[in-house]
Structures are given as structure tokens and as C-alpha cells.
Amino acid sequence: MSAFCLQVKHVNVLFIDNPVGTGFSYVDSYSALTTNNSQIAKDLVTFTGGFLEAHPEFKTVPLYIFSESYGGKMAAEYALFLDKAIKDGNIEVPLEGVALGDSWVSPIDSVLTWAPFLLQMGFVDTEGYNIIDSYAQQTKAAIDAGKYELATDLWGRTEMIILQVTGGIDFYNVLFPVHSSSKSRPITSFRGLVNKLLLRDDDDLDHFMNTVVKEALEIPAEVTWGGQSGDVFDYLSEDFMKPATEVVEQLLEKTDLTVCVFTGQLDLIVDTPGTLLWAEQLKWSEAKNWATATRSPVVINGIIEGYKKSFGNFHFYWLLRSGHMVPTDNPTGALKLLQEITHYK
């Protein structure tokens, strides 16, 4: 793994290229690539221990794990494993909580709610709904049969169908205008879909990371940002559609950590209906109390930026006017969430 730490306006931030093989991190042998979420979590715990030994000044600084998208699936198990390592006396750091943003925690709940979400938003008609839903149901059937690699392939086909039916919707924020230009590369294959939606295949971003950022971090010339990302996805394809809801349940039931789930209302990749669905179906001792807790608006300078529901150590935030990248689309609401979860002043 590769990582760097910096202090921004409000908190210290540690960025980690994870799992190994993504970003600037790389492996000399593909046998070192991870194939499931538990391996990713164990790698992260090992890294955390090494980082704290190299920088002991952070051993007393409260630690919160914030994540987004597939990172949410990783962060949940990372938090669970790290909490155990701390309790076992193997790592010293005050781990306080984990925040799962637009997280791929229950993939099938996202896939099954795409068709109704797009219908209700006006992006498809009933015929389009039926086409998308038919592929979503095929994906569910593969999962029910334990054919997870096939489910990953069918997930990709479902998204390809959505692109066709909608004429090219933006999965990151359904309200973003989609322009046709000479710079855009239409998605015509499963690999193209993965590269664009998951691996952030973007010429401008690639250039920025491999020039400005690479030089600033003094990355060796032979290392290329994103050079092994495609291989990382291939090695995780069997695990990609497996849920991590049981891990979240263990966080709520077996730890004292603050657990936050937040969702951007305009995200299609991990849509709000699917996220709320798995959150409401979590099995933990305070589930009924959380379900009936008061849902209150998040108001900043007289503007409603979202809503939240909390009980015990579980907090759920709906962030308005934002898609998959909540901090980018609604920085005001995201900052308020950060303040409330970390309790910083």
C-alpha cells in the first residue's frame, strides 16, 4: 500500500491507496493481490500498525474511518478488525467510529432498486423499467444460486442496459448534464464500464495524478497511478457482489464505535432507496428503536441540507442535492456531518 498524511482545515487526513494494487500502490507478484474483503481489512490493520509505529504521535489522536462507494464495504470490516486488534492489545489508537458513504455494503439492494428509482425520477418509462428490472432479477438469481462471479457480470450488464435505456445517464449524479463531445469515450463493453464507473478512467485525472501529484509525492518514475487497478478488480470479481451487512451488524452489536451511514439522494451507483433498504433490515438489538427514532432535518444557515436519524451508536444521514460524491456535491452538508460524527469544534 501507499499512503500520505496531511492536515487540512479541520482534521488530519490519512489517504491510503487501497486495496494494494490501486492508486500508486503496486505488487511485484499478482499473487499478493487480495481476493476478498477480509484480506483487504487485514492488510489495512497491518498498515495501520506500521503507520502508528512510524508516527507514534498519532497513537493518542482519535481515529475515524471515513469511506465512499466500495470503500464503505472495505471500511466496515477494517473497523471491525481494527477494533479487535486494539482490544487484543496489538495496536494502540483511540478508534472512535466509521462512516460509510454511498457504500457498496449490500450490492443487490442497489441493483434491485435501480429500476423503480429511475422510473420515479422520470428517466425511464414502464417499458424501460421492465427491461432494467429483468436484468436486475437475473443478477439476484445468480446471487441466490451462489454464482457471485456471474452476478458481477450481470451487474455490469444491468448498468449497460441502463445506459442504453436512458441514453447515457450519469451514474454519479443523475442530474448532471450528459454532453456529447470528442473527448468523451462511449461505454461499449463491460471492461469499459468498470474502467469508467469504478476505476475512474479519465484522461484529465490520469494526467493530473501521474504528473502534478506524482511529482509532489516524489513517486518513482516507473510507478504509474492506476497501473494495476484493472487487475485488482479482476481478482475481486468473485467477492464484488457479496454483501457486508453482517459486518455492519457486528459493528453495532459488538463494538462501541460510532457507525454512520450516509447517502446522496442523486446517486445512482448506490442509490438511496437501496441503502435505506439494507439499513432498515439490519439485525441488531436496537434495530426497532432506531427504526422508530425521530428523523430530523439538517439545517445550516436556514437551509435544509439533509435529514438524519440516530439511536444509540447508529446514525443515518440523507444528504440532499448530492450524488455519489457527497462532499463534492454538497460540501456544506458533508462538513456538518463530519462535525457531528467526529465531535470536533
Rank of each mutant, 00 (worst) to 15 (best):
D204S: 13
L33A: 08
W114D: 08
L319S: 09
Q164D: 13
F15K: 05
T158Q: 10
Q164K: 15
G23W: 11
A115P: 01
A287H: 12
Y172C: 03
G227Y: 14
E68P: 03
L197T: 12
G89K: 12
I162Y: 06
S29K: 15
C5K: 14
A216P: 02
S29V: 11
E246K: 10
K140F: 01
L63S: 01
L33K: 08
P19T: 12
E159I: 14
F81L: 09
L276I: 14
G333L: 00
L193I: 03
H55R: 13
L95Y: 07
F58V: 13
G72M: 01
L197C: 11
A85S: 14
N36L: 04
T211Q: 11
A334I: 02
P94S: 08
V20R: 08
N90R: 15
D88Q: 13
F316G: 01
S38E: 09
Y78V: 13
F4E: 08
G49L: 14
D329I: 03
G226P: 13
C260A: 15
Q281D: 07
Y172T: 05
Q281G: 02
P116W: 03
L282N: 07
T245N: 10
A75E: 05
T188F: 09
A141W: 02
T275R: 00
D83I: 01
F4Y: 15
E218S: 13
F262M: 10
D28S: 12
G72I: 01
G97A: 13
Y64T: 04
L335G: 03
S103C: 11
L44D: 09
N36E: 07
K42W: 05
F176W: 05
A141I: 00
K242A: 11
I132E: 01
L198A: 07
P56E: 11
F316T: 07
M1H: 14
H10M: 14
E77R: 08
Q339P: 04
F208L: 14
Q250Y: 04
W278K: 06
S180K: 12
Y135S: 09
A54F: 09
L154P: 02
T113F: 00
L338C: 06
T258C: 07
S29D: 15
H179R: 12
V20Y: 02
P327A: 06
T211V: 08
K84M: 08
C260I: 10
G101R: 00
K59L: 12
E77K: 11
M241E: 05
V223N: 03
V178N: 14
A142F: 01
D133W: 01
N37V: 13
N330H: 10
A32Y: 11
T158K: 06
E340L: 10
M74S: 11
L52N: 10
S69F: 02
T60V: 15
S184D: 15
G312H: 06
L199C: 09
T139Y: 08
G312R: 06
N301C: 09
T332S: 12
T34G: 10
G72D: 03
A221V: 14
M209N: 15
T258P: 00
K345F: 04
D17Y: 06
H207P: 00
T46S: 10
S134I: 03
G146R: 05
N37W: 01
L44W: 02
K140E: 06
L217F: 10
A151G: 06
Q138V: 03
G167F: 09
A291V: 05
V20N: 05
A79L: 07
T158F: 05
L44V: 04
L251F: 00
T46H: 04
E149M: 04
